[in-house]
Design a protein around this nucleic acid. Structure first.
Length: 218
DNA sequence: GCGACAG
DNA sequence: ATCTTGTCGC
């Protein structure tokens, strides 16, 4: 039922252990253009104290409509630590994905993918565990340097770490603050940027993650 | 020592 | 992220 991880690992890790694990997970990332990208599952989570609510909204890209949505609640114990966000959010997101009736072609996460100090942001961590196509779309920067993208919708600038391109700063709406797109797993940066733009209608954030955010805090 | 720092 | 109403700016 739904998407289930190919493998798992301990979650009660020390910061040092968590970082070591991220380096190992990053080595498993694969780059490819997904066979299908018709349905996208937007994922997000909201937390109040120790209680969290994760939401998954499956969006049909061409029809621009929601096909399915689920929400699950649970305890979130890992604290927020810049660079270790996935250890706080992945457990509950996996619970939500397991409840889906359908299998989305791509996962769109509210956070970074490879645009991370150890190339293992939330989208990468989740994508690798599920071995499923994933893209990260964050509202702000965690890591990397970049120029200001053009002001029109669709323009974007590469996000670099030294000479390596780790993501893209994308203008989803004219004159609006850009979003940070990066590959999570089984994806290419070009396809991730194109998909993000195709999923964006009248708001700054693409519909999948925007709706998931809305549902998670409802 | 001083910033920066996804959500 | 979360705490929270009105309000500054294009």
């Amino acid at each position: 039922m739904g998407l289930t991880p190919r493998f798992t690992h301990p979650w009660d890790l020390s910061p040092a252990e968590a970082q070591a694990l991220q380096r190992k997970l990053a080595r498993r990332v694969r780059f490819e253009v997904p066979e299908r990208m018709e349905t996208v599952a937007g994922l997000d989570i909201s937390v109040r104290g120790e209680q969290g609510r994760a939401a998954a909204v499956v969006w049909h890209v061409d029809r621009q409509q929601v096909l399915e949505h689920v929400a699950v609640e649970g305890t979130v114990s890992f604290p927020y630590v810049p660079g270790l966000l996935s250890f706080r959010e992945v457990p509950l997101l996996l619970q939500a994905l397991a409840q889906l009736r359908t299998t989305p072609d791509v996962l769109m996460v509210d956070g970074q993918g490879l645009a991370h100090p150890r190339r293992c942001g939330l989208a990468t961590h989740l994508g690798v565990l599920l071995d499923h196509p994933a893209v990260g779309v964050a509202k702000s920067r965690l890591f990397g340097r970049h120029a200001e993208p053009g002001p029109e919708k669709g323009s974007w600038a590469p996000l670099y770490d030294d000479g390596e391109v780790i993501g893209a700063v994308v203008r989803t709406r004219t004159g609006v603050r850009p979003v940070y797109v990066s590959v999570g797993h089984r994806m290419t940066l070009e396809a991730a940027v194109a998909l993000t733009l195709r999923c964006t209608t009248r708001y700054r954030l693409p519909e999948p993650t925007r709706l998931a955010d809305q549902l998670s805090r409802a």
